Amino acid sequence: TIDDAFRAIERAIQAENEGRYREALKHFLDGGEMIVTAAEKEASQKVRNLLLHKGKEVLEWAEHLAEWILE
């Protein structure tokens, strides 16, 4: 659900702030994927587009974090 997705993102932010970057990455990926999944089930085109945009933002952040971890 969207609530689960945002809880995962909150955990990711907390982990990132505490320097637990790999854990943060996992939570960002989980949250982003949950948002995209919820968007695919959404009946309203406007809400679907907003959710897809937010999911994409979260997944892009996860990608940047992963690249930073690997440096």
Rank of each mutant, 00 (worst) to 15 (best):
Q45L: 10
E10A: 13
A12L: 06
E57R: 12
K54H: 08
V47D: 05
E63C: 14
D30G: 05
I2P: 04
A39M: 10
T37E: 12
T37W: 05
E71A: 14
H53M: 14
R20Y: 04
A24H: 04
A62I: 08
V36Y: 08
I2F: 05
G19E: 01
S44H: 11
V47E: 05
E57G: 04
I2H: 06
R20M: 05
N49M: 06
R48P: 01
M34W: 09
R48W: 07
K26F: 08
D3S: 10
E71Y: 08
K46Q: 11
Q45H: 08
N49E: 14
V58Y: 08
A43K: 14
A39L: 12
I35V: 04
E63R: 15
K26V: 06
G31T: 05
A66L: 14
H53R: 15
I35E: 03
K46R: 09
K56W: 11
I13S: 03
M34I: 10
V36S: 06
E40R: 10
R20N: 08
R20I: 00
T37Q: 14
G31I: 14
R48A: 05
E16M: 15
V47R: 08
A15R: 02
L59D: 00
R7L: 07
I13N: 03
T37Y: 06
A62S: 02
L70N: 14
Y21A: 01
G55T: 04
I2S: 05
H27I: 04
W61C: 08
N17Q: 15
D3L: 14
K26P: 00
E67N: 13
E60S: 10
R11W: 07
L29E: 02
K46H: 14
E33G: 07
E71L: 09
E42A: 13
T1R: 12
E67T: 08
A15M: 09
Q45R: 09
F28G: 01
E10R: 15
Q14D: 05
N17C: 14
V58P: 00
E33I: 14
A43D: 06
S44W: 12
V47N: 07
A5I: 12
E18L: 10
L29G: 01
A66K: 11
A43G: 08
Y21C: 08
G55F: 14
L59I: 07
E71I: 09
L29I: 11
A12N: 01
V58G: 00
W68Q: 09
E60D: 09
A39K: 02
L51P: 01
T37M: 11
W68K: 08
N17G: 08
I13A: 07
L70V: 13
K41F: 09
L51E: 05
L70W: 11
Q45K: 09
K56R: 11
G55V: 13
H27Y: 13
R7T: 06
I13K: 06
D3G: 10
E67S: 10
M34H: 03
E23V: 03
G31E: 03
E42H: 09
A8K: 10
A12K: 01
L65P: 00
K54L: 15
A12V: 03
E33L: 14
E40Y: 14
A5C: 10
R7S: 08
I69G: 02
L59P: 00
S44N: 14
E33S: 12
A12S: 01
E40K: 15
Y21V: 04
A66T: 05
Q14E: 08
W68H: 08
R20K: 07
W68M: 10
A39E: 02
V47Q: 05
L25H: 03
R11E: 05
Q45P: 12
L65D: 01
G31D: 02
D3A: 13
I9Q: 00
G19S: 07
L52Y: 06
E42F: 10
H53I: 14
E63P: 00
Y21H: 05
Q45W: 06
Q45F: 04
T1K: 07
E63S: 13
V47Y: 06
R7P: 02
L65E: 01
R11A: 07
A24D: 01
Q14H: 11
G55L: 15
A15T: 02
L70I: 14
L29V: 07
A39Y: 07
Y21R: 06
A15D: 02
L65Y: 03
V58T: 01
E18H: 05
G31M: 06
I2T: 04
D3H: 10
S44I: 07
G31S: 04
R20E: 03
G19F: 03
Q14R: 08
W68G: 03
D3Y: 12
A24R: 02
E40L: 15
E40A: 14
N49D: 12
R22W: 12
S44A: 08
G32D: 01
L59V: 03
E23L: 02
V36Q: 06
E67P: 00
H53E: 14
G32P: 01
G19W: 03
R11D: 05
A15P: 02
A5N: 01
D3V: 12
I2E: 03
D3F: 12
E42Q: 08
K46M: 12
Q45M: 09
A24W: 03
L50I: 14
A12H: 01
A62C: 04
W68A: 10
A12G: 15
